[in-house]
Design a protein around this nucleic acid. Structure first.
Lengths: 331, 331
DNA sequence: CTAACCTACGTTACCGGTAAACCTGACGCA
DNA sequence: TGCGTCAGGTTTACCGGTAACGTAGGTTAG
C-alpha cells in the first residue's frame, strides 16, 4: 500500500489538495487536470485511506454499526440484509455484532463501536443499560432502535409492538372458539419481547373471560427442540388445553412435530400458533397460523431513517412497520 | 464526544503519552499515576478514538472484513456467527458485506473495505476477479478464503471440496442401488460451487456406468419453491429417474414437497438427496439424506487462522474442515 | 567513586487526509 | 485605468493518537 495523495500529486505535478478534490469529485480544477490526476492515480494503483479521511475531516465516517440478538436468527438475517442493501448502495460500511440477548453484551459492543466514530448505529430492542444510553448520548450519533417499537426512543425507532402481536393473536384464537390457551416460551430471563407478546396475549384472553390456563417458559434457545419439549411438558401438566401459542415459529413447528408424534390432531384436538414468519414453515403439510414480521422492510426502513438523519433531514422519529397475522391451518 | 488524551493529560497533570500508555495497559508509569489517570479518564467519560489510533500507528486496525454470498443464507449465518464469536472475543470488529454470488460485486466490496485498512479479510469462495486479486496483494493483509477449498489460496483457505461432496453423494446413492440419477440446481450462471458438486457427482456416476440422466438448473435463488418447481420440470421431461440430487437442502425439501403432492413415494419411487445440512430439515417426517457442512467450525477456523497470522505466527495455509454425509430416509 | 542501567516519565515528529484561507492571472466592466 | 470576480489552483493548520527517542533522578555493579 504505497501510493498516497502526495505521490499522485508529485507525479501529476499538482498539489495534494487538488488530487483530493479530483478524487472526491469536487470542483475547482480543469478537465485536463482531472484527467491527468485520475490517470496517475490509476497507474499508481491508489487505494484511498478512509481511516485518514474520516479522522482528518471532523465529519463522521461512513461506518454504521448494527447489533442483533443473534447472528443465526433467520428473522434478523433478513433485517440485516435489508439494512445492508440500503446502506451499501450509499457507500456505508456495516459493522455487526451480536449481543446474545444480553444488554451487558450490548453495552460492551456499543463501547467498542463508539470508538470507531460510526456515522450511525442500529440496535435491536428498546432495553439498554443506563451506561449504554449515556454512551449513545455522548457519541451524539443517530441511533435507530429496531424490532421492538418504543414511543420514546433514544433517537429513532423502527418496528412494531410485540404486545399488540400477542393481543391480535389472542383475539384471533378467541374468534376461532379457543377457550383454554397455553403458552410455550424460551429464553426465560433475557427475552423481553417474547414476554411482551405473552402479556398482550394474556391480557386479551383475561378480558374475554378465558384467561391463559398454563405456560411453560424454558431457559433454552427458542428452537425446534425447545418447542417439542416445551409442549410435552406443558401438556403433561395440563392436558386439556385447546390451543398453544408459541414464542416463535421454530418452536411452534417443534410443537407441531410433538403433536404429530403423539397422535394429537391439529387443529381439531389442539390449535397451534407461532410468531415470526419463518420461511421454512412453508415445508409443513399444513400452513402454520402465525404472525408474519416484515423483516426486510424493517431493515430497509431503519437504514432509510438513519440515512435521512445523516443527510441532515429530520428523519422519522417513530416508524411503525405493521405485522400481519396469517390464519393458517393449525390455529 | 469531547474528552481526548490531551484533556485527560491536563486534568491529571501528566503528558498525553503517559495517558496513552496507561489506557492501553502498557508500562512505564507508577501505580499512583495509573490510578490518577484512570480515574480522570472515567470522570471525563473518555471514549477512545480507534480511528486516530489505527491511522496514527502504522499498524493495522482491528477491523476484519467478511464477504458472504448472501446474508440471508442460513448456512453462512452460522459461519458468520462462528467468525464473530472468535473475533469479538479478541477485540476485533467485523465488517460484513454480501456479493450476491457475483465476483464483480465482491470486487467492489473489497475496494471499499481495503480503504479502511482492515487487519484481515475473509472471502467466500475461491473465484475472484483479477482486479480483486491485485487489490488483495496490494493491501498486503491476511486473507482467508472460506467455504470452497483451494490448494493454491491467495493466502489461506478454510473449507472443504465441493467436488468431493458430489463424489461422495454419488457413491452413496450408487451403493443404495440408484442407477438413473437427475440433478436440480439453481443460480445457473453464478454458482461455481454447486457446479463443482455436480461435476463430482457426474464424474463418479459416469465412472460407475450409470451416468447422470438429466438435469435442470434454474436461474432462481436456491430456495424451497425453486426445488419444487425444478423437480416438476425435471420429472415432466424425464419421468423415470430413480433419484434426484439437489443443489441444497432448501431445494431438496421443496422437491420432497412436490413428490408428496404428486403421490410419489420417497424413497421407494424416488430418492432425494440434498446438501448443506439445513436445520429446519429436522421438521420433516423423514430425515433428509444430505451432506452436513460444519458451518460454525469453518467460521471459527477461519477466524483462528486469521488471528494466528495477525499475531505473527505462520498460520495454517490450508485447513480442511470435513463435511459429513448423513444417510437419511429419503435417499 | 563512577559508569552503566533502570524507572518513570516528557518531547517531537509523523500518519494521510480535509477544511479553510489564501493566491494568481484572465477577463468583464464602469 | 482600476477594480471586482471567477476559475483554478496552492498553502497552512490541523484531526488524535502512537513510535521513537530524550532525560532526570535514583540504584546497582565493579
Amino acid at each position: 500500500m504505497k501510493a498516497n495523495l502526495e505521490d499522485i500529486a508529485k507525479a501529476a505535478g499538482v498539489s495534494k489538495m487538488t488530487v483530493s478534490r479530483v478524487l472526491r469529485g469536487g470542483t475547482g480544477f480543469s478537465d485536463e487536470t482531472r484527467d491527468r490526476v485520475v490517470k496517475v492515480a490509476e497507474r499508481l494503483g491508489y487505494v484511498p485511506n478512509k481511516l485518514a479521511a474520516a479522522f482528518g475531516s471532523y465529519q463522521a465516517s461512513t461506518l454504521v454499526g448494527m447489533c442483533v440478538p443473534r447472528l443465526t436468527s433467520g428473522l434478523f438475517a433478513h433485517v440485516l440484509d435489508g439494512v445492508d442493501r440500503a446502506l451499501s448502495r450509499l457507500g456505508y460500511q456495516l459493522m455487526i455484532g451480536a449481543n446474545n440477548h444480553s444488554t451487558a453484551e450490548e453495552e460492551a459492543w456499543v463501547r467498542q463501536i463508539a470508538s470507531w466514530r460510526p456515522a450511525g448505529l442500529i440496535l435491536s430492542g428498546r432495553n439498554h443499560t443506563p451506561a449504554t444510553v449515556d454512551l449513545l448520548r455522548q457519541v451524539a450519533v443517530p441511533v435507530v432502535e429496531i424490532w421492538d417499537l418504543t414511543t420514546s426512543p433514544i433517537d429513532m425507532s423502527v418496528g412494531f409492538s410485540h404486545y399488540d402481536c400477542g393481543v391480535e393473536m389472542g383475539q384471533f384464537l378467541l374468534r376461532r372458539g379457543r377457550r383454554r390457551a397455553g403458552y410455550v416460551g424460551a429464553l426465560a430471563r433475557a427475552d423481553v419481547m417474547g414476554q411482551a407478546r405473552l402479556e398482550g396475549f394474556q391480557a386479551v384472553l383475561a378480558q374475554a373471560g378465558a384467561p391463559l390456563v398454563d405456560r411453560e417458559v424454558l431457559l433454552d434457545m427458542p428452537g425446534f427442540y425447545a418447542g417439542y419439549y416445551g409442549l410435552e411438558v406443558l401438556l403433561t401438566r395440563t392436558p386439556d388445553l385447546d390451543v398453544v401459542y408459541f414464542h416463535n415459529d421454530d418452536m411452534a413447528v417443534g410443537g407441531l412435530a410433538y403433536a404429530q408424534a403423539k397422535g394429537i390432531r391439529v387443529p381439531e384436538d389442539l390449535g397451534i400458533a407461532g410468531w415470526g414468519g419463518m420461511e421454512a414453515a412453508s415445508i409443513l403439510p399444513k400452513r402454520l397460523t402465525t404472525t408474519v414480521v416484515p423483516t426486510t422492510a424493517i431493515g430497509k426502513a431503519a437504514a432509510e431513517a438513519l440515512v435521512a438523519r445523516l443527510k441532515g433531514e429530520p428523519g422519522q422519529e417513530v416508524t411503525v412497520v405493521p405485522t400481519r397475522l396469517v390464519p393458517g391451518e393449525t390455529g
